[in-house]
Structures are given as structure tokens and as C-alpha cells.
Design a protein around this nucleic acid. Structure first.
Lengths: 344, 344
DNA sequence: CTGAAAGCGCTTACAG
DNA sequence: CTGAAAGCGCTTACAG
């Protein structure tokens, strides 16, 4: 179609790009009508709409997101801020969010807050300049400033991972109840000296620790000396290291609750090397049910958290909010499941 | 500053947003000068430039990316297309790319091609509508259509993970040489019946297989019956399963080269259960040196591939290309390293 | 149901 | 070195 293209090129700043006008011309309508037909809004004669859609398809037309965002003061972008990009938990979350939002025509802009509330606030401020249609955040990692920004922006948002009762939208689970559940399982198995080991001390970790402490305190078994908390990054290697240190310092420990499966997997490997019998001598429980946990020796007892479900449900909820729907239950509890295998 | 804001609100479609005009007014210059000062282009009186920067900072001004993209026909977006979001290899890549590009003021738009060249082409077409400043792709997964699109777009791009000699820009390593290296190490250790096991059959897998076959053929040891290739998703569980099947079908196998560490880790666990002694009875080598490989029992011999390095270097190379520099060595070989531990 | 006008917030190209 | 004009490609608000 050299003529069309030539005609468009007359302006000095033309980009040579295929525009809505080309589609409109081909369909024999005005650009406004073409715009409406393509977006499926307003009243357009079905026949005309069909012609427009055919023209767009024939020309392989893709609307310019920048022009669209500028004109409508809203971009089809959803901002997703996660605490880490190297944690399997958040990868599955990202993947699930993508799966729901991409087919719905949204771009997912991912920000890595590195478990740092300050970074989260900075990223939020910067990403808000894109005028996103929606926000997916973790509430517990927010500063007051970030919370204010989020509210003032007027952009719909959903909080991920945990739950709250302040009227905001949540998709997550009670981290504290999960912590309590593990402690109770271990006590029910007759364990008395139950340790809690955690790295990467974010808010969700502390909530789980609170649940653990609550349960043990109620049973008169809480011993602060059995809590090992380190800000280091959670990893298999660190789990092995912490295991070794703990059993040498407290040889009487009879159960260990690791805050993440990577730590627990490392501990299991270390137990193998130290010839510590699991669960006979020490019971071990992990958290999250990550890849490999059902295959390690012995198979790891852990808490399954539905990350993909959180991703899908939060994206779906956000989709509803973005089109102005009201949500009946703003705090969606996706639950957790204690998966009892061989290690405890 | 209610007056300023009130003045701006006179137009019916005003968004209430803080604009370049506000910054210019505060600094006492025209918007064009403010624009130039903020971008650091063109000649601007240093004193004026300083005033503009101060005004922007005082107002907490963030330029509108949409307006910027529309006016300049280029957005500060880099598109990164990866074959998977659930593979640790690509997560580390994504993280490293982010680390370089975000501070440089670019947004990274991530697309998941799901190992499907068709999806890659579709995503490319769609993402190109954002007029990205640069593209980060895996060449071997491209269709001819995608390659044509990439070229025609005029957008600078760098291919990740492997190498090529067609003048395009690459940051990666010779997957075939790595495959050959593993096979040679096993043969040097006296192994004669060396199996190759792979899942998720992408091009890089096939290149490694080619290297393996080449080395074994040269030594007269190649046995096609010892190649196990499955299109299933690579995982620890699958590794365990393939291990069991292979040793029962071919009890004489004395070494296995797994195409990814997750498979090898699963195989090690299965060997533990089946009481197969590694490496005495069967040597096992993995690929990629993923998390946990140095901790498993026995510690896994594998090939370390520098994913973070690929991410950083490719982002840095793209940054240079985007500002019009020429690259002296368009194909950057980041190499690989055979890490000999206990399993082979 | 359809369209001409104006505007979104920037940058480019041109003058001075 | 600085700025007034025009334009990027869409959509909104207003008429008809």
C-alpha cells in the first residue's frame, strides 16, 4: 500500500508507523469510530465495527500504547512489586499473574524491592508515573509513605501473600496460623524442644514466628534459646550451616521448624552427612513446599502455600477492580496445607 | 502550590498531573529548555540547567513516559524475552539485567515465550508496539518471521545464552563445547558407557547433545541407546524417574550426563534410595550449577554457566548499542567452567 | 450511531 | 544558548 504510506509521510515528524487513521481509511470510517469499534466501547453499528476489525487485522494493526496512555490518562500496565527475584516463591507468583493479565491485554511491569521498604516506596513513585491501571503489592513491606502514595494515586490495588482487615483488598493466607499449625503438629508428635530457624527476616517470617511462639507458649514449651533468626539470604547452604550449629549448641533439640524449604533441604543434607537420623532423632519441618521437597531423603514435611493460586486470584480480583466492580469479600484467604511426609 | 495547580486545571481534560510546564515555570524558563536541561542534551546554560534540576527535585517531578515515548518515537523500555519464568537459570538472568538497566533509567518488559517460537514471534510483534529502545532475545528460539521482525524494527538487540558468527550481537557461551567437555571428562575418568539425559528439548539442549555425541563418536563410544530425550519439563522429580528407568533398562551404564542440575539432583536422590553408589558405580554430571548442587550427597560435579554475567554483559552491551556505539567484539563468549566435585 | 475539534505531556525541527 | 510552533497517535467531550 505505497500510496497510503506515502500520503502519511508528508508531515515532517511522521514515524512511518501504521496508525488508527490507516485502519479507519481502509474501513471507510472516521478514526473515532475506528477507535470505538476496536475498543468495543460506545455504540457502533455492528457492520461498521466488523469492517474496522477486519481492516485492523488485515493491516496487522497494533495500537500505540503511548498514545493511548497519553490520551486516556491510563495505561494498560499493571505494576507488580515483589520482594525478590531469586526466590522461587515469587517466581511462581509472577508467572501466574502474567498468565491472567497478559491475555486480558495488560502489560506486567515487575519491580524488585529487595525486601527493602525504602526501595519499594521509590519504585512505587516512579512506576506510578506510568499511570498503571492497577497495582499488586505486598502490604507488610510498605512504609507509611508508600501506603499514602498508593491511596492517593487512586489506582486500584491488591495486597499479596497475607491478610488484613482494614477494608483493603488482600489475597493471601494467615502466616501466623500456618506457624501455629506447624508447632502444634510437632507437639502432637511428642516433640518437646522445638526450634524455629529463619533467614531473610521479612514480615511474613515474623508472623510465622509469632504463631510458633504462641503455640509453644500455650503449651509451656517456649524456649527463646531455640529461636535462630538471621537476616542472611535464605538458601540450601545456609540451612546446612544453621543445622550444624544448632545441633552442636543444643544437642537436645528434638524438632526444628525451618521458615523456608531451602533451609530445611540443606538441613536434611547436613543431617545425612552428620548421620543424624531424621525424624527419629530430630524432626524437621519446612515451609512453602518448594521443588524437591517431596523427593529429598527423607521426604520433607512442610506447609504448602498456594503461590500460583495467589497470583491468579489477585490478578483476577484486580481485573474486576479495574473495571469498577466491587468485591464481595475483600480479603480472600487461599489457605495453606500441612503436608505430612517423612521428616516429621 | 494551589495557584499553579488551579491555573493548570482550566482545560477540561487536565489530569491534575505535575507537568514539565510546572517545572519550567518554577525555574523561570520555557518548557523546551527545561526538557533539555532534564535530559542533559543540547546546550543549556549551566546555571539555568541547575535551576531546572532543583525545581524538578523540589516538585518531585517525574516525566510522563507515555508523552515522552509519543513525542520521541522511542520509549525507555527494553524488552526481554525468556523461554521460561520457572527456570532458575532465567530468573538469575532477569535479575542481572534489571540490575544494570533500571539504574540507567530503563524499564524492563519481560515476556515469557514458554519455549515456543510461535509465542516468541507474537510477543515480539506486540511488544514492538511499545517502541522499545532495545531487545534482549534468545536467537536459537526464533522463527524466521521473528528474525525478520527484529531486523526490520531497527531496534538494537542482543542475543543471549549462545553464540553466533553472523555479525549479530551475542553474549553467551558455546553450548556444544560445554557438552563436549563433560563427555571428555567422563571418558578421562575411565567411563565407557556414558548416557545423556535431557528434558525440555530446546536448541541449547540439542547443542550440548551434539557436543556429547561428537566426543563419544570420536572415541568410538557413542551408543544411541544411551540417549534419553524427553520433551517434558525439567524437574527434580523427573530426574529421579529417568534415573530409575535408565538403570533398570541399562544396568551396565557407568556414567550419566544430565542436561540440567535439577535432573541430576533428582537422580542423586534416587540413587540414594536405590543404594546405587555414586560415583563408584555410576558417575553423575549435571549442568548449570544450580542452587543446592554443591550441597547434595555426594556433591554434584557440573558445568557452571555464568547466567548473571550473561545478564550484566548483555545489558551493558545493549546500553552501548542504544547510544549508538559500535561494539568491537559482537560475540562475547563468557565461557563455562567444569566444576569437579564428588559425583564424577 | 457518527464525527470534527481539542487536548493528553512531551520532543523535534526550525528560527533567532 | 533559548524559545514559539507543530506534531507524535490516540481518546475525551461535545455536537449532531
Amino acid at each position: 500500500m505505497p500510496e497510503t504510506s506515502g500520503a502519511r509521510r508528508r508531515a515532517s515528524r511522521s514515524t512511518g508507523r501504521l496508525t488508527l487513521r490507516d485502519v479507519a481509511e481502509r474501513a471507510g470510517v472516521s478514526p473515532i469510530t475506528a477507535s470505538r469499534a476496536l475498543r468495543g466501547v460506545g455504540r457502533v453499528d455492528p457492520q461498521l465495527a466488523q469492517r474496522v476489525r477486519e481492516a485492523a487485522r488485515a493491516l496487522n494493526y497494533v495500537p500505540d500504547p503511548a498514545a493511548r496512555a497519553l490520551a486516556s490518562a491510563r495505561s494498560r500496565v499493571v505494576v507488580l512489586l515483589v520482594p525478590s527475584l531469586s526466590n522461587q516463591v515469587f517466581m511462581e507468583l509472577i508467572e501466574a499473574v502474567h498468565e491472567v493479565l497478559e491475555p486480558a491485554g495488560y502489560q506486567v511491569l515487575i519491580g524488585n524491592t529487595r525486601y527493602d521498604p525504602g526501595v519499594q516506596e521509590r519504585l512505587l513513585h516512579q512506576y506510578l508515573s506510568h499511570r498503571p491501571s492497577g497495582l499488586l503489592l505486598t502490604r507488610s513491606d510498605q512504609t507509611d509513605g508508600a501506603r499514602a502514595l498508593t491511596n492517593l494515586s487512586g489506582v486500584p490495588y491488591v495486597y499479596l501473600m497475607d491478610l488484613g482487615h482494614d477494608g483493603a483488598h488482600y489475597v493471601g493466607l494467615s502466616q501466623q496460623a500456618a506457624g501455629r499449625c506447624v508447632a502444634e503438629h510437632l507437639m502432637a508428635g511428642g516433640r518437646r524442644r522445638i526450634a524455629f530457624v529463619a533467614a531473610q527476616l521479612d514480615t511474613r517470617t515474623r508472623q510465622r514466628e509469632a504463631g510458633y511462639r504462641e503455640a509453644l507458649t500455650a503449651a509451656g514449651l517456649y524456649d527463646p534459646d531455640l529461636s535462630v533468626l538471621t537476616p542472611e539470604r535464605s538458601s540450601i547452604g545456609l540451612g546446612a550451616q544453621l543445622m550444624r550449629r544448632l545441633v552442636s549448641r543444643r544437642p537436645d533439640v528434638d524438632a526444628i521448624f525451618f521458615n523456608n524449604d531451602d533451609l530445611a533441604q540443606g538441613a536434611l543434607l547436613e543431617a545425612l552427612r552428620l548421620r543424624i537420623r531424621v525424624p527419629d532423632q530430630v524432626a524437621i519441618v519446612g515451609f512453602n513446599d518448594l521443588e524437591g521437597s517431596e523427593h529429598v531423603v527423607p521426604r520433607l514435611t512442610t506447609v504448602r502455600t498456594p503461590r500460583a493460586e495467589i497470583g491468579r486470584q489477585s490478578a483476577t480480583m484486580l481485573l474486576a477492580l479495574m473495571q469498577g466492580d466491587r468485591i464481595a469479600r475483600p480479603a480472600l484467604d487461599v489457605g495453606f496445607e500441612l503436608v505430612i511426609r517423612e521428616s516429621a
